[in-house]
Design a protein around this nucleic acid. Structure first.
Lengths: 230, 230
DNA sequence: TGTACATCAGTGAACGCGCGTTCACTGATGTAC
DNA sequence: TGTACATCAGTGAACGCGCGTTCACTGATGTAC
């Protein structure tokens, strides 16, 4: 592995950005291949880029700094995937479903990237300002659209955004950290969970007020024409 | 820190189990104090117990072995907390709520323990056979009770157990890994999310078949007496 | 009750490793004249 | 167009560290006689 470092031309004067981007890309690739985030060592990244370890410090102050850059890149990629999935869809619920499904699919197909961005402790809490992320903003806007369409009660979209995000995150992260559980068709499970979450919020808003276990039970009894058992 | 190791009596012939238990307890305490699972080094654990590092290997084959023991202990503690919360409750939905809330509260008050058990990669996938865990079994039994009470459609409880578990896990793990987000009252948020998840599943089972975005939208429209906007 | 001895829980020192980071340096690049 | 030179991207060697793990050992414990 050492010794076979590919030759690379020294960057010309102004083009420091090129190597920086290459480093982030290499770090992501290393993470994707490895079992854990610890495998992304400064030396391994430098090796992959074809450069010596100290060079990394010309572009990042720290290992955490590099990790933050990777996380930011992952968030951007996730946002792109979500936008692509919802492209051409107009109905707010359809968009919501597309976003959620794209989110879970991204997590399943890039488990290590998802891990460092959303499961591991944040390297730099402020850099990782999730709320400022494009993906979060797009998601929240769609929640607002659902409110305006009368699917959810019209109010501050933030709590419901958190709620639906946590539904997607919950199923995605369990599938990632406990892959040996009998999930069955993960895509179908994700779809089922996401739709139930949206439906649950819609139903809760219809019922109104604080939903308690008793009220859930009562509501179900009301909906059933007869107290069926069959 | 070194040098002030408390004197400990050598264990008598048969009582190897005592030190083993002490080691697990010390490891848990170290994890709870530290920011990350990496802080639980063999040396630190040995120090905390008042023993030298090689002694650990008399009771655990590996660091992973120790970690697995800690994870198992955490699962047991979680199960105990859940059972305690549901004690004396008979109505299945009340029990479900108590379980879920206890689960989230445990996660929030023991974030590092929750992290190694449910967020970090499993040290030994087979030891961590979640399905065999007492807590999971109790939870699944309660889901079955809800089915028998007619709240959910009567079927294999496993998928719904996964679904509701992922709801609790989603909100708990987001609150842990992104503590700087404006959650508001975490307890109230957890309650709200858990009840919506249960309600969503109940509603989905009432509607029947695969729930699509279109059907959610249609169902909401049906339920609303007039196409209100106020 | 007293002594010799086998057991084995715990020790002390050391191993090799890979890590993040530093520092004085080198030499290709681009510029001034 | 040609040459001297300043710049600064990238280097090579080294630092100190804490880690998991090993190994030959020691000496308190419990037992056999």
């Amino acid at each position: 592995m050492t010794g076979t470092i590919p030759k690379r031309r020294r960057a010309s004067r102004g083009s420091g950005e090129d190597l920086r981007a290459e480093i982030v890309t290499a770090a992501k690739a290393l993470l994707a291949k490895s079992a854990s985030a610890d495998a992304m060592s400064i030396r391994a990244v430098a090796d992959a880029v074809g450069v010596t370890a100290p060079s990394i410090y010309l572009h990042f102050t720290d290992k955490d700094d590099l990790l933050s850059a990777v996380v930011a890149d992952v968030f951007t990629e996730l946002d792109t995937a979500m936008l692509a999935a919802a492209e051409g869809l107009d109905a707010p619920m359809e968009r919501l479903r597309a976003f959620g499904l794209a989110y879970v699919r991204f997590a399943i197909s890039h488990p290590e990237h998802y891990r460092i961005a959303l499961l591991d402790p944040c390297p730099r809490p402020d850099v990782d300002a999730v709320l400022a992320t494009a993906g979060f903003a797009h998601f929240q806007a769609t929640v607002k659209q659902c409110m305006q369409a009368g699917i959810f009660a019209d109010a501050d979209p933030l709590p419901i955004t958190f709620e639906l995000w946590s539904a997607a995150h919950g199923i995605a992260s369990l599938m990632i950290t406990k892959p040996f559980l009998p999930w069955g068709d993960k895509d179908a499970v994700a779809e089922r969970v996401l739709c139930a979450a949206a439906l649950g919020r819609a139903a809760a808003d219809l019922i109104g007020g604080d939903v308690t276990p008793q009220r859930v039970t009562d509501w179900v009894a009301t909906q059933q024409p007869d107290s069926a058992d069959s």
